[in-house]
Design a protein around this nucleic acid. Structure first.
Length: 734
DNA sequence: GTGCGACGATTTTAG
DNA sequence: ATCGTCGCAC
């Protein structure tokens, strides 16, 4: 393709960004405005028009999926494979550097990558070793502390305890964790970035080499970058680099995991970047876009961007007030059936929810209706326990000192190595600063005969496996280890069907190894490369079936995707916005952005549903409809079942009459779930009440029934309280 | 070492 | 409601 052809497929604003003079560029790209197109065309433009070698180009993304897509699209623009082009995730690219320069980075050549799960185990182990109270020092929280600091580029020695004993202890644990990782030759996810940042900072020759080589760095989803990712880019670009960065501050939904949307502003300022905006949307109808714009307009502190579309009109956004979650699911499935009858594929429809637990009612209903569906999220392939067990054996064949792998499988399948024996090994390992494997070797003769025998059996097994697989091709290595370690038999013996599934997964691991192409020039054996790949790219949650099926996922998981039909379900206060955010002015804007993300996924049809009652945690709760519904332009909405009157108490007995009379929704054929009698509430949601102690407030929610009925009230003075309704003595204020 | 019952927690999650 | 973890009994 010529560089002129390249531009012909772009609109004016896209073309301006793609052809911007070489230098720091910030592209603010709204949802559906063609940001991937701009990124890939910019890469091709630099190569074709500016004569930049693919070798001198780097493109950074957050997910492997985005990286793979970008590579494919750039290659098809160029019409040739661009394998010298560095495209990958922040972590993948950092990893690549560390493999190349492991010596300079002061790593073992065989360093392994610790995933979230491994990391938590290690932290827990350290807490136990320190004889700390595990209730007080929760492994997950300590892990969170460590990662939050690493994400901001801070090592333990840079942290001050500020005379806070809790903080002091956390820093101490962080320090111990660092030492253990160092000793075991393992590197966690955040460390990949931190370590490659240090590498460039501390080794001037490498720094100069990479800066010179990658004058052109393209970064996607910049609003999702955290502190260390920003610094990493800064280090790599230096003063002369020309990063081309794409961001959408309105789609920043990951602050809770360390992302700093401020990085976008900081980038513009520090680099003096030229700003381009992409505001023409090619995805959604005007109606949908208008609604999305109206919601996001409620946020302040935006960089300023308003989507528009050349298309006019569109179907109204349909709002359905369900009685409960069953009714909500019935409604959605009815609509999907309608669409199916009109010839739309099932995969054109997506059900988006705030929390994973909400998928349940939809799964049950879809299952009963025999409609195929796919749920995104959950455990991924390489994160499954049986897969990680097999990988642990493989890791041990590579490095006996890998304590994390050792602990995982030393007694799996059970071979009589119990807690007491392990405790001895751990103590010895700690005292002598050596690995569990070596500690075991030293101690084996001093152990009781049974334990010693069992331990020797394990040592012999791993040594034998290592020897036997040395000359085999990768997938045979994997097959051999699964077989001879006894893992396969172990699961085959399990009575329930779960065992069968595990055996299938183990067999699938062999297939995955067979299909795997080792990374070029990372200096690793095929097996080493495969192990790194497994951690860095943990796979899909469900293998793509190729089947036409309804898509179920969280709003977060939907980012970056689009569907002709979208259902955003569970639009209730306390669910969406979630109750963790609903009363927190700092968090609410992110929740609203999440709503914006959800709405902008829809191309043709958008349905929003909420339920008047819903079973959550085994209890029925009554929540008000989401404030986000009220933020939408009324003229864009169409109530599928209009509420009869606004002044009527929402949950009076007349609603039951309404339901049984069947006048709710004439278009429905199936009888709907009718609310149970007696579930009428003593007062409506939003009612004003007075409490003898807490003063005046607003009723937010009811939960449970009868004597155990609770009421959530937002008091003006006292804040949010949960009270037993029968004891609260609430007086309703007219 | 395995199996069972009590107990607690339950927003979102890529690499 | 449900799932995972923990402690204890066998």
């Amino acid at each position: 393709m010529s560089s002129q052809d390249l531009l012909s497929a772009l609109n004016e604003e896209q073309r301006a960004a793609v052809t911007a003079p070489v230098g720091p560029v910030l592209v603010l790209a709204g949802a559906g405005s063609g940001k991937t197109r701009v990124l890939t065309h910019r890469a091709a433009w630099l190569i074709l028009e500016h004569g930049v070698s693919p070798h001198g180009l780097m493109a950074v993304t957050f997910t492997n999926k985005a990286a793979a897509e970008m590579r494919g699209r750039i290659e098809s623009l160029l019409g040739l494979p661009a394998d010298t082009l560095w495209i990958g995730t922040f972590h993948g690219l950092s990893h690549r550097m560390l493999r190349r320069h492991w010596r300079e980075a002061r790593l073992l050549q065989s360093f392994q990558i610790l995933d979230q799960d491994d990391q938590e185990r290690l932290v827990r182990k350290i807490i136990r070793e320190q004889k700390l109270d595990e209730q007080r020092w929760v492994a997950r929280e300590v892990q969170g502390f460590i990662n939050a600091n690493k994400d901001e580029g801070r090592r333990s020695k840079q942290l001050a305890d500020r005379n806070d004993p809790t903080r002091k202890q956390l820093i101490q644990l962080y320090k111990l964790y660092e030492d253990r990782c160092e000793a075991a030759g393992v590197v966690d996810f955040a460390e990949l970035l931190l370590r490659s940042f240090d590498l460039l900072r501390d080794v001037p020759e490498l720094d100069a080499y990479y800066r010179e080589r990658f004058r052109h760095i393209l970064v996607d989803e910049f609003q999702d970058t955290n502190g260390i990712q920003y610094d990493w880019l800064r280090q790599l670009t230096g003063r002369t680099g020309a990063p081309f960065v794409v961001a959408d501050d309105d789609q920043a939904i990951y602050r809770w995991r360390g992302a700093r949307v401020e990085n976008v502003q900081q980038f513009k300022r520090e680099y003096g970047a030229v700003l381009f905006k992409l505001e023409q949307n090619y995805r959604s109808t005007q109606i949908i876009l208008g609604a999305a714009n109206a919601v996001i307009a409620k946020n302040t502190d935006r960089m300023g961007k308003e989507l528009w579309t050349a298309t006019r009109g569109g179907e109204p956004i349909r709002v359905y007030a369900a009685f409960n979650e069953r009714d909500e699911a019935d409604f959605v499935i009815d609509r999907i059936r309608d669409h199916q009858r009109r010839g739309l594929p099932l995969a054109a429809a997506a059900v988006l929810y705030r929390s994973n637990a909400q998928s349940r009612s939809f799964e049950e209903t879809l299952m009963a209706a025999r409609i195929p569906y796919r749920v995104y999220g959950g455990l991924r392939f390489f994160e499954r326990a049986e897969i990680k067990d097999a990988l642990a054996y493989l890791r041990l064949t590579q490095s006996r000192d890998d304590d994390i792998a050792f602990e995982r499988v030393v007694n799996l399948p059970a071979r009589g190595i119990g807690g007491a024996t392990l405790e001895l090994l751990r103590r010895d390992a700690r005292d002598h600063g050596r690995s569990l494997w070596r500690a075991g070797r030293e101690l084996e003769s001093a152990l009781p005969a049974r334990a010693a025998g069992a331990l020797r059996g394990f040592f012999a097994l791993v040594d034998r496996l290592a020897l036997e697989i040395a000359e085999l091709p990768l997938h045979e290595q994997v097959r051999h280890v699964i077989e001879k370690s006894g893992l396969r038999d172990h699961h085959a013996k399990e009575k329930d069907t779960k065992g069968e599934a595990r055996v299938e997964n183990l067999d699938e691991l062999v297939n995955a190894a067979e299909a795997f192409t080792p990374e070029r020039d990372d200096g690793l054996s095929p097996l080493g490369s495969f192990l790194a790949h497994a951690t860095l790219e943990s796979g899909e949650t469900q293998a793509a079936t190729g089947l036409d099926c309804v898509q179920l996922m969280t709003l977060h998981a939907a980012k970056g995707l689009e569907f002709p039909t979208v259902f955003v379900v569970g639009m209730e206060e306390g669910l969406f916005p979630s109750e963790h955010s609903a009363f927190d002015a700092d968090r609410l804007p992110e929740e609203r952005r999440l709503c914006y993300v959800g709405l902008t996924r829809a191309m043709q049809r958008l349905y929003l549903t909420h339920a008047e009652s819903r079973r959550i945690f085994g209890r029925t709760s009554y929540r008000d409809r989401s404030r986000f519904l009220s933020e939408l332009p009324p003229e864009a909405l169409e109530d599928v079942r209009p509420r009869i009157s606004v002044s009527r108490p929402l949950y009076g007995t007349d609603r039951i009459a309404l339901a049984t009379a069947g006048q709710a929704d004439a278009s429905r054929r199936r009888s709907r779930a009718v609310p149970v009698a007696g579930e009428d509430l003593p007062m409506r949601l939003g009612a004003r009440v007075r409490h003898p102690k807490f003063g005046e407030g607003t009723v937010l929610r009811f939960e449970g029934q009868g004597e155990s009925r609770q009421v959530h009230v937002n008091f003006e003075g006292a804040g949010r309280k949960i009270l037993m309704y029968s004891l609260a003595h609430l007086e309703q204020i007219p």
